[in-house]
Nucleic acid binder design. Structure first.
Lengths: 202, 202
DNA sequence: ATTTTATATGACAACGTGTCACATGTCAAT
DNA sequence: ATTGACATGTGACACGTTGTCATATAAAAT
């Protein structure tokens, strides 16, 4: 978490700094990003940066968290729009992510191509966590379970885990530049379809 | 790839260096590993390191590749032992990975908790690739497709993609230390079971 | 023996990080 | 207005790491 000083900053100065950080993390992934670049771009002295953040990662995770919050809202909305159909919602969501604009796109690209467990934990707070916690419940309640082949909360939880694994992986593949947009969506649709019908014939 | 000089090295000196590198990459993940530590441990001058490798990553991926080759063989064997039952084979394989010994375990831990796309690409060469390539065919041929709810090679490929996503994710969770051994296996079994039966009721 | 080629070595420049002593600003109390 | 207390700004600096390069040494070829 950024220090209090950061939040006490006059808005324009704070936004300026945030913008410089965003730019650097859009340029290269976390491990290659340099504080030097950020302060050079934001035109603040080195010491000031440390007045606001503990270190590079602190700044990165601050940005990441705001991204995640936005996507979380977006996802809940998408789920509602699709009347609780988790599969259609995921497809919408997937499409939205890989259709981001310029700067966000580069940020996301660096993010997904360098997805450490620590980052994943923050990301996944959106819709799955270690325990069946609040976020999971919120989403769980929105999901239409009528046609779902699910016995209990446990199974639902694991289904969400699977869907999230598969989605993450598809996003990564897309960002790896291995596929054009249409092919990426088709592939994802296929995998969702396979998840629905199951791997064993009845 | 290491340079020719590396392979021309007398065996003991080479193994010494490899061991030092292994030790460093078991200590910390790639991005935190330092060449300084490796050469200090291997007792070779700095210049020599660059005679053998391009950089840190070169050394890392050399080690990774040998790991992967070993696991690849192991996996094919496991698949045969299970008479082509991909699900049982995966469960065996999963169990084997999370049951590794000391140094390997730490190496794998750092690996999976910091799985970049580049690393994943190397790892996944074992049993899935962009195209339906040789490795995929080799495994595809070993898989018993009798009871598999699969229409064509395409679907089989995507099933493998899904299984691999889910497996990766389960390994990461285990290494994140969130679960004791038994719970980890149970969870993985549950997810494989869910994949088999499908998410929609017929 | 002499030349050519391969390998070894460590000092060095360039760069990035986090800290710290000191400068400056803010504001309430007197 | 002046003071003092506290918050914030600043940049030089020590430290660690990386990759290179000129030079030394060894090995092979002629």
């Amino acid at each position: 978490m950024p220090k209090i000083t950061f939040f006490n900053l006059p808005e324009d100065k704070r936004e300026n700094l945030v913008h410089a950080a965003k730019k650097e993390f859009a340029r290269v992934p976390l491990n290659q990003a340099s504080i030097s670049n950020i302060i050079k771009d934001a035109k603040i002295p080195r010491g000031s940066f440390y007045q606001y953040f503990d270190d590079k990662e602190d700044a990165f995770f601050y940005l990441l968290n705001s991204h995640v919050s936005a996507y979380k809202m977006h996802f809940l909305e998408t789920l509602r729009k699709n009347n609780g159909d988790i599969f259609d919602a995921m497809i919408d969501f997937y499409t939205a992510i890989i259709t981001e604009e310029k700067e966000n796109l580069q940020f996301l690209r660096n993010l997904f191509l360098n997805m450490t467990h620590r980052i994943e934990t923050v990301m996944a707070r959106s819709f799955s966590e270690n325990d069946l916690n609040e976020n999971f419940r919120k989403i769980g309640n929105l999901i239409n379970k009528e046609k779902l082949n699910v016995m209990d909360e446990q199974e639902l939880f694991h289904m969400m885990q699977i869907i999230s694994s598969v989605t993450f992986h598809n996003i990564v593949k897309k960002f790896a530049g291995e596929l054009p947009f249409e092919a990426a969506v088709t592939n994802y649709r296929t995998e969702i379809y396979l998840l629905k019908k199951g791997f064993l014939s009845q």
